[in-house]
Design a protein around this nucleic acid. Structure first.
Length: 804
RNA sequence: GGGCGGUUAGCUCAGCUGGUAGAGCGCCUGCCUUACACGCAGGUGGCCGCAGGUUCGAGUCCUGCACCGCCCACCA
């Protein structure tokens, strides 16, 4: 064993061994009936591991390993999401590069091509999870487009249809002109953009005057059907009910009153374009106005005389028309936020189109109730409230997408227009019996299938033993922005289809920002590939660093925290070398006789309790702190130093106990640092099997006396090291440990007695002042007051010893 | 515009239901003490964002203010 721990070789060797020996498999190490189940948030098939994955993987693995060591039947389900729009985007780009397009090659060839590409180059993330040491049951990898999974998706849709919650409606939707599909509000990314706000005069149809209106999109004037003002706006009281003439197209349209108009903005008058603006669509619908369309699905103009123009050119032409007639009253630069497609960043075009919708009221109600009753809990608590509010406010779900890559909607239409929704596919129309059926070309929203992940991966809808055994699961770990897209939908679909929520706890992880506090992003160049620290410092160190910085808020990536993890692994490695070198021929067994042995066993148990509490509360950062100080301070600096003399002397009890103490330390550290601990474990004598499935330490009766005695020794060491004065200790045992660890003969002879005296006097003064305060003594909790008294006494005693 | 969170040592951050401030890194001083210099021992360093309030006592609770993030939102 080298004195410098080298993680790279060790880590991959153990990853391969664990997996090959089946120790990642569900049920490995099982010694009890309870199960513990986590489904990995299925990453996009086309994606690569990023820092967020590394953090959520570390969290999930700690929980899985901890439960596995305690004998639970653990299942950590791996797999991928087909990621409809994202994957289609990748393939389409390839086709364009090859000088063709998806429409040119056709739907069938396109899908074939996508499958082929995925088989060849997709699905890389699970390999990267392996390198992190994530103990997923890789043999069970699933994909949301697997045959069995498709059954689940189709069944879900048909159930919703049968419940009467699926409907088709023409509505204004977020339309991505590049992908030529509707996308949901949640897939729209708002970005600040600079535009020009122009003010346009709409003359009254009869008589003098007119109304001025502000717009950033002059081209949509062609589709105007009204001008709206606020009902209480005194400026326009007389205008309501009259007609104005829309520029360019010279159409007469009414002036209407609607409270949704903000009288403070611009001129206080709003042009109404139901075909191309969501608010206008609603206003138009409520006033019974016509919906006119002048922009096509490709984002180009369709208005007569403007056909094929892009909107910028159309804007210019309209502005020109207005200028010629002096109807352009002004233009100013204007910065506002604009919706873009989160995948291709094209500007979203609000377009009216027929889509399939899923009603959310009936589906959401039981989920809201379950959340209120805390049947599932979000951590941190603030996200729990957010989850409830999002469900309460959830609009109906637009489930159709005009894409090819995805689950095609199971609705068939006969020539008479009757719709049949069944699975397996129908042979004939359910109403007229016609055999000439045509399937709806749209596919389902990707999140529609993700919503089924926790149970579709267990074989739902078929009744299976696995569903029986592993459903519902336990924990789900994900990012904040996924709550509405995924968490809430798993909750309501689990309740609807199986009557139970798929998990009891949802951990919302911090967003890992770059070291300078900016978002990690490829385009900004601020991203850090987690493979870098894993290769450079080790997976153990990376896991440690990420968990150490994790918290309830956003965190900055810190290489320092990862380096701390590397030091911890190295320290552990070296103390193991010390013990292993001195204990050849011994077997691990707790045979504590001396004070320091009773003490370290008590400390190990206290740390076990703390760490278990931290893991259980999902406070991963706190646990890293406890384990770090346990290893460095207690185990290495005190225990190992104290037992060196008897260890070198060949004391058999001491050696057996040292091995046992090391074992316990390894077990506590294993969920956090699986590789280095397993490597050391494999060098332990008389140990068969692997640490990964070995028993978690049982609670041990705490030895309060031993803890107190070591406190005294440590305090004495502090005083001695600072001042050179030896404090009286209570027993030979205490004096022996003091001598072994502090080694007075080697310590600097002359300490700084003066500053130590000053320190003590200051402390004594403080304690005296507090105890002199009658109200403090009367009101403070007794243990606080007693604590102060004890401190005072100790300081006085030390002052005496220092010869004052 | 709405919601959530932050402001503590030079840096990155802990501080649970109020009891008189901590860690890691950095810096300074000793040590190559036979596990580890990726180490050991000691030290320097904080009016805990600002202003009020409650309390015997306030990073900790309340109010207001100032910055800084994140999420959400149809201001033309």
């Amino acid at each position: 064993m080298d004195s410098l721990y080298n993680p790279t070789a060790v880590e991959s060797r153990w990853q391969e061994t664990w997996e090959a020996e089946g120790l990642y498999a569900a049920g490995a190490g099982r010694r009890r009936d309870d199960s513990f189940v986590i489904c990995v948030p299925p990453p996009n098939v086309t994606g690569e591991l990023h820092m967020g994955h590394a953090l959520n993987g570390s969290i999930q693995d700690v929980l899985i390993r901890w439960h596995r060591m305690r004998g639970f039947d653990t299942l950590w389900q791996p797999g991928y999401d087909h990621a409809g729009i994202s994957t289609q985007n990748v393939i389409e780009k390839q086709l364009v590069a090859e000088g063709t397009s998806r429409r040119e090659i056709g739907r069938e060839a396109f899908l074939e091509r996508t499958w082929r590409w995925l088989d060849e180059t997709g699905k890389t993330i699970m390999g990267q999870y392996r390198r992190l040491g994530a103990s997923l049951d890789y043999a069970r990898e699933r994909f949301t487009m697997d045959d069995g999974y498709v059954e689940a998706v189709m069944t879900f849709f048909v159930r919703l249809w049968d419940a009467g919650w699926i409907y088709r409606e023409n509505r204004i939707v977020n339309w991505c002109p590049h992908h030529q599909t509707a996308i949901s509000d949640l897939e729209v990314e708002h970005v600040e953009m600079d535009d020009t706000l122009v003010t346009v005069r709409y003359p009254f149809a009869e008589g003098e005057g007119g109304i001025s209106v502000a717009t950033v999109r002059p081209a949509t004037i062609l589709a105007d059907v009204a001008v709206a003002v606020h009902p209480d706006d005194p400026r326009y009281r007389d205008a309501v009910g009259r007609e104005v003439v829309v520029p360019v197209v010279e159409r007469r349209v009414p002036v209407i009153a609607d409270a949704r108009v903000d009288p403070e903005f611009g001129t206080g008058a709003l042009k109404i374009t139901p075909g191309h603006d969501p608010t206008d669509f609603e206003i138009g619908r409520d006033h019974g106005l016509e919906v006119l369309t002048v922009i096509g699905p490709d984002g180009l103009m369709t208005a007569p005389g403007f056909e094929g123009l892009d909107q910028r050119a159309a804007d210019a032409r309209v502005v020109e028309w207005l200028e010629e007639r002096a109807q352009l009253e002004g233009h100013e630069p204007y910065r506002h936020s604009v919706g873009t497609c989160e995948r291709c960043h094209s500007r979203i075009e609000p377009l009216v189109s027929p889509q399939w919708w899923c009603r959310m009221d009936e589906l959401g109600r039981p989920a809201i109730e379950a959340l209120r009753e805390r049947k599932v809990r979000f951590h941190p608590e603030s996200q729990h409230r957010f989850a409830i509010e999002s469900l309460e406010q959830a609009p109906d779900w637009c489930v159709s997408r005009q894409l090819w890559w995805g689950h095609q909607i199971p609705i068939w239409t006969c020539p008479d227009g009757h719709r049949t929704c069944t699975w397996p596919p129908p042979d004939a129309c359910s109403e007229c019996g016609s055999g000439r059926l045509e399937r709806d070309p749209d596919v389902l929203d990707t999140w529609f299938s993700s919503a089924l992940w926790p149970f579709a991966t267990l074989g739902w809808p078929g009744p299976t033993d696995e569903l029986e055994r592993y459903y519902p699961g336990d924990v789900n770990v994900t990012a904040r922005e996924i709550i509405r897209l995924w968490e809430n939908r798993m909750i309501f679909s689990g309740l609807f289809l199986l009557g139970e929520i798929p998990f009891t706890d949802v951990i919302i992880t911090s967003t890992v920002l770059a070291a300078d506090g900016r978002r990690m992003s490829k385009s900004l160049g601020t991203g850090v590939d987690p493979m870098e620290p894993i290769e450079g410092h080790g997976a153990d160190a990376t896991r440690y660093g990420l968990l150490k910085i994790s918290s309830t808020q956003d965190v900055r990536y810190s290489l320092g925290a990862i380096e701390e993890g590397r030091k911890l692994a190295n320290k552990l490695w070296n103390v193991a070398r010390l013990i292993l070198q001195q204990t050849e021929g011994s077997t691990p067994e707790a045979r504590p006789r001396t004070l320091e042995e009773r003490w370290i066993l008590a400390r190990l148990d206290a740390a076990r309790a703390e760490v278990e509490d931290d893991w259980a509360r999902f406070d991963f950062s706190a646990a890293t702190g406890v384990l770090y100080h346990l290893t460095f301070d207690d185990f290495c600096d005190w225990y190992a130093e104290a037992v060196k003399p008897p260890l070198y002397d060949g004391d058999a009890d001491c050696r057996a106990t040292a091995l046992r103490a090391l074992e316990l330390l390894l077990a506590l550290l294993h969920p956090l640092l699986p590789h280095v601990t397993e490597e050391i474990w494999s060098h332990l004598p008389a140990r068969e099997g692997r640490l990964i499935v070995s028993a978690w330490p049982e609670p041990d009766p705490t030895e309060a006396e031993a803890l107190d005695a070591l406190d005294r020794v440590q305090e004495a060491a502090q005083v001695f090291r600072r001042s050179g004065v030896q404090v009286e200790l209570e027993s030979d045992e205490e004096r022996r440990i003091f001598a072994a660890v502090v080694r007075p003969e080697r310590a600097r002879a002359a300490g700084d007695v003066e500053s130590e005296l000053a320190r003590l006097r200051k402390e004594i003064e403080r304690a005296e002042r507090m105890l002199a305060n009658e109200r403090f003594v009367a009101n403070a909790p007794p243990e606080v007051v007693d604590g102060e008294r004890a401190k005072l006494e100790r300081y006085r005693r030390e002052l005496e010893l220092l010869g004052a």
